[in-house]
């Protein structure tokens, strides 16, 4: 199968300087996402990594404008290169026709827990038909044909019969496959996968990762893959973006970032994962000291200051710039722009 979209270096979606604030009537505002810049290209997978609460899911939902009512995208833009020209998703109303034409058809999403994101009272076939009929001029019958071939493509055995199954009748792996079939129903150009394998066992996880890779080859779509598991990142990603407390602190080619992480948080994250080594080579883990502070205690400067072993004078007050390290590899850290003497002073 030839890719439907030619592989090109041109970005499909770029998020520039986005911040998202959650408001509450009786508490001060919380800036869950402070500064996010991401670029997605067709045929490539960008893995967005971070610990719980760092804002990675909120970022993904913002792209589809699926945020709760009390969330507000304060600054920044999300530029999507649609067929008719570039669209700033931030300027669209979440329930407008234009947004609904994009959501599910051109950009679609796989959610973490298939059991709670599929409707329990509709068969999976009906749920997938609905999307197809909604976005394309097809009859119910034609839609079902497409649904069956999709279910077949994602590796559900006996697709025609299984289309009539309810989610509870399927195992976790099959449910996630049905979820993927649904996301692919209208051949999206961008697929957002929010922890698609976290709830699954390792052998099932490996199968789903294989499937996603294969589908990406077939359809040529861009993929934003959200995960907290560095093993999964190493397995699927072309590029990696590391988030910490609402900021993207480092972004670059996956091989390069794993080989030479530049931001102290990325370095610390990588050294806290146990490596698969023989006992003789094994070293004690070096965890990051302390815990993630709440967004309201975040310093004005670099968010990682309170836990960073290298923090020095400008860190708490001045926000580090995006500093290019090599081609396509950027990090936000003062150590990259200051000399060693300044850092030690």
């Amino acid at each position: 199968m030839t890719p439907l979209i030619p592989m090109a270096g041109k970005p499909l979606l770029s998020i520039n300087d986005m911040s998202i604030v959650f408001t509450s009537p009786d508490e001060p505002d919380i800036e869950a996402v402070r500064q996010v810049d991401l670029t997605l290209t067709p045929g490539k997978t960008l893995a967005l990594v971070g610990e719980s609460g760092c804002g990675k899911s909120v970022t993904a939902r913002a792209v589809l404008r699926l945020l709760d009512k009390n969330a507000d995208i304060r600054t920044g833009e999300i530029v999507y290169e649609a067929e008719g020209g570039a669209v700033d998703v931030v300027r669209l109303k979440p329930d407008s026709l234009a947004m609904r034409a994009i959501r599910g058809a051109q950009i679609s999403m796989i959610f973490q827990e298939p059991m709670s994101s599929l409707s329990p009272v509709h068969t999976i076939g009906n749920q997938i038909d609905e999307i197809i009929v909604l976005h394309e001029r097809l009859t119910q019958k034609q839609a079902r044909e497409r649904t069956v071939s999709l279910l077949d493509q994602v590796g559900i055995p006996g697709a025609r019969e299984r289309a009539n199954a309810y989610p509870f009748e399927l195992s976790g792996g099959l449910r996630q496959r049905a979820m993927i079939a649904m996301a692919l129903a209208c051949t999206p150009k961008l697929l957002i996968a929010d922890e698609p394998t976290t709830a699954l066992d390792v052998t099932t996880q490996a199968q789903i990762l294989d499937l996603l890779r294969q589908l990406q080859d077939d359809f040529g779509m861009a993929m934003l893959f959200i995960t907290h598991d560095l093993g999964v990142v190493a397995e699927v990603a072309d590029d990696i973006a590391v988030m910490y407390l609402g900021d993207v602190v480092e972004q670059g080619d996956v091989f390069e970032v794993f080989k030479a992480p530049k931001h102290p948080y990325t370095q610390a994250l990588m050294s806290s994962v146990p490596r698969l080594q023989r006992k003789s080579e094994r070293t004690r883990l070096t965890p990051i000291k302390g815990t993630v502070p709440s967004p309201k205690d975040r310093p004005v400067g670099c968010a990682f200051t309170s836990r960073c072993p290298h923090a020095f004078a400008p860190c708490p007050t001045i926000r580090p710039e995006r500093t290019p390290v090599s081609e396509g590899h950027v990090a936000r850290c003062h150590l990259l722009t200051h000399t060693k003497e300044e850092a030690l002073a």
């Binding site: 390792v202 052998t203 996880q205 490996a206 199968q207 990762l209 294989d210 890779r213 294969q214 598991d229 560095l230 093993g231 999964v232 990142v233 190493a234 397995e235 990603a237 996956v254 091989f255 794993f258 990588m270 994962v273 490596r275 698969l276």
Partner: peptide, 19 residues
């Protein structure tokens, strides 16, 4: 075989045998 390793140079790629 199914265990993802946090090192892209040891990427396992597609595996038909996991079934």
């Amino acid at each position: 075989e199914a265990l993802p390793i946090a090192d892209p140079t040891r990427r396992k790629g597609r595996n038909k045998e996991l079934k």
